[in-house]
């Protein structure tokens, strides 16, 4: 697997980049050069996905050269030979891996998920345990998360169903590897290296299988958040990220539906859709307010808020009886953004 990965990179870099660039790419070095390269040569999916020593990379390159798959063009620079191209023809990257896209998120998601599962498994089996992650933030996140869900058996069942559904999509081998990395009430999770030994695979292949499933989960929970609400809620909400329901509303707005139509279409109260629109106004800078709030009204609201030095809705509303609470909230949502 590692041979293929390195060969793949050498091929993509077309003899224009040295092994050092591959080293930086695979180890996920966040420099401008590496970031540019990974886009330019279309290898960004491998960004940070195979953290290996440079010496190991050089060994692989030497082996590839000895087998005639690559040839040296300059110091530490190689390009693919015909037989190398042939070797690559039968190779495909694990389909869901996208190191670039998920570089900031995947490790956090994994830590939360694995600690959550360890905790749930131990609670329902009434066993004691030591958290598999030491990070205090991860621990308190899981605690808070569990606190919101009172009935543990129901929770376990729902989480099981979400996991089951997602894991049935991926290859059997990948699903196995992912689950073996997890820690339960009866088995501490196995390391990549242990799994590799047990199933007689290369450690890099095991690592990529694991990442493949992890990224698949991230992709699916993003695409179909309402189908996987529990897993989705483990993800980090960035400022630019909408709740899944608001996201739906945003999609419909972009297609030209009106507020009332959306409420009807989704079977939700008008108030709920208004909440969504305020959320969208807050997080999506390109969202245009005017269909919901005339510019003159907006100016008056902001002016009042400034004078009163307050964001209290009621205080503003008292002075501007002709505007609605919804309009005030919209104006304020944007005002804060402009303030930042």
């Amino acid at each position: 697997m590692l041979q293929h990965i390195v060969l793949f990179c050498i091929d993509r870099f077309r003899g224009e980049r040295s092994l050092a660039a591959i080293d930086h790419l695979l180890n996920g070095k966040k420099t401008a050069q590496t970031l540019q390269d990974s886009k330019w040569y279309d290898v960004s999916r491998l960004f940070g996905m195979v953290p290996i020593d440079r010496s190991r990379l050089f060994d692989v390159a030497r082996a590839l050269e000895a087998d005639g798959f690559i040839s040296q063009v300059d110091e530490h620079i190689y390009c693919t030979t015909a037989s190398g191209k042939e070797k690559l023809r039968r190779f495909i990257l694990p389909p869901y891996i996208d190191g670039w896209k998920y570089m900031n998120e995947s490790s956090l998601f994994w830590k939360r998920l694995s600690l959550l599962i360890q905790t749930i498994a131990n609670i329902i089996h009434r066993t004691s345990f030591e958290p598999i992650h030491r990070d205090e933030h991860i621990q308190s996140f899981v605690k808070r998360w569990l606190f919101q869900h009172t009935h543990i058996k129901t929770l376990a069942r729902s989480l099981y169903e979400e996991m089951y559904e997602l894991l049935s999509y991926v290859e059997e081998k990948d699903a196995n590897i992912f689950v073996w990395r997890l820690t339960s009430h009866e088995r501490i999770g196995w390391t990549n290296e242990q799994i590799a030994y047990a199933i007689n695979e290369e450690d890099v292949a095991v690592l990529l299988s694991f990442q493949n499933v992890l990224h698949f989960m991230l992709e699916m929970t993003e695409k179909e958040a309402e189908k996987f609400p529990l897993l989705y809620s483990l993800r980090e909400r960035k400022r630019s990220q909408l709740t899944s329901s608001a996201q739906k509303t945003w999609e419909l707005l972009k297609e030209g539906y009106s507020l009332e139509q959306i409420a009807q279409l989704r079977g939700l109260r008008k108030g709920t859709i208004e909440d969504h629109i305020v959320e969208i106004a807050t997080y999506i800078p390109t969202f245009v307010l005017t269909p919901f709030l005339e510019e003159s009204k907006r100016k008056r609201i902001i002016q009042q808020a400034r004078q009163l030095k307050t964001k209290k809705l009621r205080a503003i509303k008292e002075l501007l009886p002709d505007v609605s609470y919804f309009e005030i909230r919209l104006a304020l949502a944007r005002w804060e953004r402009e303030d930042v």
């Binding site: 749930i120 699903a175 196995w190 799994i195």
Partner: peptide, 22 residues
Amino acid sequence: QIQLRPWHEELRSMFAIKVGNK
């Protein structure tokens, strides 16, 4: 040796899901 079981068995055991209901 602790046997590594197929993923669905492991998962069922973790969440204490009885065999038969999915």
